[in-house]
Design a protein around this nucleic acid. Structure first.
Lengths: 248, 248
DNA sequence: GAGTGGTCTAGACCACCCC
DNA sequence: GGGTGGTCTAGACCACTCC
């Protein structure tokens, strides 16, 4: 019955966040419902109102709740589609769409950085770069051609085995302890050329989406640069955008 | 010399945010620089450390700063491209790209909602809907065909004059007092048909981007639904995505 | 006027980094 | 050990909404 444990090393505000998220998920609170007031949470769990506010504020920022001054705090409408407000890998993206992800490695090599790659990765020209090219599958069908480029200085020790047998993201985050904080994604439309058409099993001239992705650490150092070609008949890109917080 | 005014009705944390943003903009602090510690700000301006933290936390969430426990708070790398983390109108988008926006109204009419429109706008089938179709220009060249749908119940009093002579967004936000909080955007690739090719001055079969946009208020009520067809040779879509805050 | 969220204080102790 | 951010308290008063 104790949903908030004061002796846990997990911060109280975070426990409360998870607890409230849980209540929303099981339908205890529905979109549009008012939550109990902050002071009520504070008293019920014997924690300070400021701590409750920290939890509420986080959930507001994450889009679970919204507040109206003088009225209360309310559950926001459920998020729609896959909420790609959040950076994901191909694997996670496909799973979220209910598809089984797969991958065929075309090559794994180390090359000297071209001018373009050097600029995208924030390294010197001709510095070593891992160049990984994969065909990405969804339910066994080719979905995209993906080229990943990583500074070999930053991701030392990357091998073909890691790429084929485990997760590149996992290696980057858990083994190398690099934390990806944000990415800039560029999306264009194009049409398939002969080579792409063959790999993706579509006709020459069929529409494709070109998606480029540059991932950064918190300090702004680029971690990876990915160029993908998705077949347009099977892939839609969807995001949720927040309007600017305007105080004026 | 008093950058923080305790007697102002503007909250202290907000004044501090603006002040710090200003220091970053004029280059007083550069990306990677450490800011003075929270306690120093608190003492210097005679405000509580919690208030300083509120300002810092907001700036971290907005991407201006990042924190490293035990080390300090640092200025983040400048944001790249047009930071379309933020919802904008066609007009604002083009201006940000250094292009002069223009518009040709093809029709402005009131129609009964189709099933699809009813669903997108969260209204009853056959309820009245404003249907606005425009050719959007950049530097005088056709850039996109845009169809906007609005619930006529919600946006009562909308006229052709408002659409042609002022800004639809301005009318929605300032006259109707509706606040758009977020939008879900879906992007697909396709190729131009005969009608689109003619309007956009491109060849049949040339790549185009289909962009759909549903805008919502804080309570989740949809405000508008926009379907656009952009010519792909002149338009790239770019966004910045944050990685999930993972506490685990 | 009662109830809500919004802002703010003046402390406290903990966790982490670096010397 | 000294300095940093991270968490938390127990209050206070203000601004807004609704009756």
């Amino acid at each position: 019955m104790n949903d908030i444990n004061k002796n846990s090393p997990i911060p109280l505000y975070y426990q409360l966040e998870e607890y409230i998220k849980g209540l929303i998920e099981i339908g205890e609170f529905n979109p549009g419902d008012a939550l109990p007031p902050e002071r009520e949470f504070a008293e019920k769990y014997q924690i300070s109102r400021m701590t409750v506010r920290q939890a509420f504020t986080d959930l507001v920022n994450e889009g679970y709740l919204y507040r109206i001054q003088g009225k209360g705090t309310f559950v926001a409408e459920r998020k729609i589609e896959h909420p790609l407000q959040v950076l994901t890998s191909f694997t996670e993206d496909m799973k979220a769409r209910g598809l089984v992800p797969g991958s065929i490695l075309m090559h794994f090599r180390k090359i000297p950085a071209t001018i373009q790659l050097a600029e995208q990765l924030g390294i010197a020209e001709n510095a070593p770069v891992y160049d990984i090219k994969r065909i990405r599958l969804a339910d066994g069908v080719p979905m995209a051609i993906e080229s990943t480029y990583l500074s070999a200085e930053l991701t030392k020790g990357l091998t073909e085995e890691i790429v084929t047998e485990s997760s590149l993201y996992e290696y980057i985050e858990e083994q190398l302890k690099l934390t990806i904080d944000r990415a800039v994604q560029t999306i264009e439309s194009s049409v398939a050329g002969i080579a792409e058409a063959e790999i993706l099993h579509i006709s020459v001239g069929a529409p494709v989406m070109l998606i480029q992705n540059r991932s950064f650490q918190k300090d702004g150092v680029p971690v990876e640069f990915v160029k993908s070609i998705y077949r347009a008949d099977r892939y839609k890109f969807s995001i949720e955008i927040k309007r600017d917080k305007t105080y004026r």
